[in-house]
Amino acid sequence: MADDVNTEENAADQMAADLQDAAAEAAGEIEALRAERDDLRDRLMRTLADSENARKRADRDRREAEQYGGSKLARDMLPVYDNLRRALDHATEDQKAVSGPLLEGVELTLRELLNVFTKHGITLIAPKVGETFDPKEHQAMFEAPVPGTKAGAIIEVMGEGFMLHDRLLRPAQVGVSSNPG
């Protein structure tokens, strides 16, 4: 009978050991599943962040393409403006009297071109003599000391510039005073 009790105790001890092993194995599996869950959650969050960044980048690129996509065409149209402006600026009073309607047509064409530019966000940079030189909008073609002016003042305007929204298409070409202060 003592052997039966020992056998039952050994069986109970074995069963308890098996249960502990099973519990330890289950705990290990739970930890492995938690680690896998955390890894998958981390990967999901990174993927969501990447897709959100890609969406924002695509949206920004689309907006820039809408605003600045025509900049090459706009740059190509600037010589047309220059030629029309030159034609009007160089017409003498005699030519205006003889070819008045023709020059009026050139002036109307120039005005319409400026209206189209404005409609598409292109603005004219027309500096005046005496204004301060701004390297963000002007290109200094020469520097000369001119009496009665301050250093950095515009002394001559040789060409107008243009902006497309907030980007410079072409700087205004100017001469700048180099008088020492």
Rank of each mutant, 00 (worst) to 15 (best):
V5P: 00
N10I: 12
A12E: 14
D13E: 10
M15A: 15
M15V: 14
A16N: 12
A16R: 15
A17T: 04
L19V: 09
A23V: 08
E25P: 00
L33N: 06
A35K: 10
R37Q: 12
R37H: 11
D39A: 13
R41M: 06
R41P: 00
R43S: 07
R46I: 12
T47D: 12
S51T: 13
E52P: 04
E52C: 06
A54I: 14
K56P: 05
K56M: 13
R57G: 04
A58G: 11
R60Q: 13
R62E: 13
R62V: 13
A65Q: 12
E66T: 13
Q67I: 14
Q67F: 12
G69D: 04
G70M: 11
V80N: 02
V80K: 01
Y81A: 06
N83L: 09
L84S: 01
D89V: 05
A91S: 08
T92S: 14
E93P: 01
D94V: 11
A97V: 14
V98F: 03
S99H: 15
P101A: 04
P101M: 02
L102C: 06
E104N: 10
E104Y: 00
E107P: 08
E107N: 09
T109G: 08
L110Q: 09
F117T: 01
I122L: 10
I122K: 06
T123F: 04
L124C: 03
I125C: 02
I125S: 07
P127D: 01
G130D: 00
E131W: 01
F133R: 00
D134Y: 00
P135S: 09
K136A: 08
H138Y: 02
Q139I: 11
A140M: 01
F142H: 06
E143Q: 08
P147R: 07
G148M: 00
G148K: 05
K150W: 01
A151M: 07
G152M: 04
A153T: 09
I154G: 03
I154V: 03
I155S: 02
E156I: 08
G159K: 11
M163F: 09
L164T: 02
D166G: 04
R167S: 10
R167Q: 13
A172H: 05
A172S: 06
G175F: 07
S177G: 10
N179M: 14
N179I: 08
P180E: 06
